[in-house]
Computed example of a mutant assay.
Amino acid sequence: MTKLLLIEDDAETAEEITAELADCGFVVEWASNGIDGLDKARALRPDAMIVDRLLPGMDGLTVIEALRKDQVRTPVLVLSALGAVDDRVRGLRMGGDDYLTKPFAFVELIARIEALLRRPAESRDRTLRAGPLELDLIERTVKRGDRVIDLLPREFRLLEYMMQRCDQLLTRAMLLEEVWNYKFVPATNLVDVHMGRLRHKVDGPGDIPMIHNVRGTGFILRTGV
């Protein structure tokens, strides 16, 4: 059975997460603070971890950083009430594999854990790859083949989100919520404007297009180029 380690200081939240995951067949070990969580992560070597960002004893990101320095590549989902882009970026830079903002739906938590577990071990590092695209989460650089692509912070986050969901249709509502942190869908062409700029940079002259507009619905990053 798949073993998960949950590091969460709120007992009620931890109990709810554990119950939901147990219903899906996961075996969950719980730690209520960062120090205990780091010890259990080293001793148990779980298949995946869920780590709250703000923990007593040792901050969640410090726990993750310590594990990465030990060359522990266990996939980690970071939980946090801090949802700004800079906060998510810091979570990824410190070694997190995915970032989920509180409050969240349990169905999404489970889906993200399942997605992390499906990733091949060699891809659990700082680099995302999609066809000829390569995105470095730490250095904040992007290349298409040998060509370096200079992106603005929002463009980088948008491409990162798309590369994590290659060949999936992403609606404008999804992008507004996940990339811009909107909790509602405003009447705006914000996504289309940024996507237009991103497509111009990713799909250069002579390149086979990777970013496709699905009329009236959203966008897809296709890897079969």
Rank of each mutant, 00 (worst) to 15 (best):
A105V: 14
A105Q: 11
V107S: 13
V107E: 15
V107C: 08
E108C: 04
E108S: 03
E108K: 01
L109H: 03
L109M: 12
I110T: 13
I110Q: 04
R112L: 07
R112M: 06
I113S: 08
E114Y: 00
A115D: 04
L116F: 14
L117R: 03
R118T: 09
R118F: 03
R119K: 04
P120Y: 01
P120K: 00
P120W: 01
E122G: 05
S123A: 14
S123W: 04
D125Q: 06
D125M: 03
L128N: 06
L128C: 08
R129T: 08
R129V: 04
R129G: 00
A130G: 07
P132K: 14
P132M: 13
L133V: 05
E134F: 07
L135C: 12
I138S: 02
E139I: 04
R140W: 10
T141W: 04
V142H: 01
V142N: 13
R144A: 14
R144D: 02
D146M: 11
D146V: 12
R147F: 14
I149T: 15
I149K: 13
D150V: 11
D150T: 09
L151P: 05
P153Q: 13
R154T: 14
R154P: 00
R154I: 12
F156N: 01
F156S: 01
R157Q: 13
L158M: 11
L158Q: 02
L159C: 10
L159G: 00
E160P: 05
Y161S: 07
Y161M: 11
Y161N: 02
Y161H: 07
M162L: 15
M163C: 07
M163E: 13
Q164G: 06
R165F: 01
R165H: 12
C166A: 14
D167F: 08
D167Q: 10
Q168N: 14
L169W: 06
L170N: 02
T171C: 12
R172C: 04
R172I: 09
R172T: 12
A173N: 10
A173F: 01
M174C: 06
L175D: 07
E177L: 02
E177R: 13
E178I: 01
V179G: 15
V179Q: 15
W180S: 10
Y182I: 13
K183S: 15
F184M: 04
F184E: 12
V185M: 00
V185N: 01
P186E: 08
P186Q: 02
A187Y: 10
T188K: 00
T188R: 03
N189W: 12
N189P: 04
L190P: 06
L190K: 10
L190T: 10
D192L: 10
V193W: 03
H194I: 02
M195W: 00
M195H: 06
M195Q: 03
M195I: 05
M195P: 00
G196N: 06
G196W: 13
L198R: 13
R199F: 11
H200G: 00
K201M: 08
V202W: 00
V202P: 02
D203K: 00
G204W: 01
G204T: 04
P205D: 11
P205N: 09
G206Y: 06
G206V: 03
D207E: 12
D207H: 04
I208Y: 09
I208C: 10
I208F: 08
P209M: 01
I211S: 07
I211D: 15
I211L: 15
H212E: 13
N213F: 14
V214H: 09
V214L: 06
V214E: 05
R215A: 11
T217N: 06
I220R: 04
I220K: 03
L221M: 08
R222Y: 10
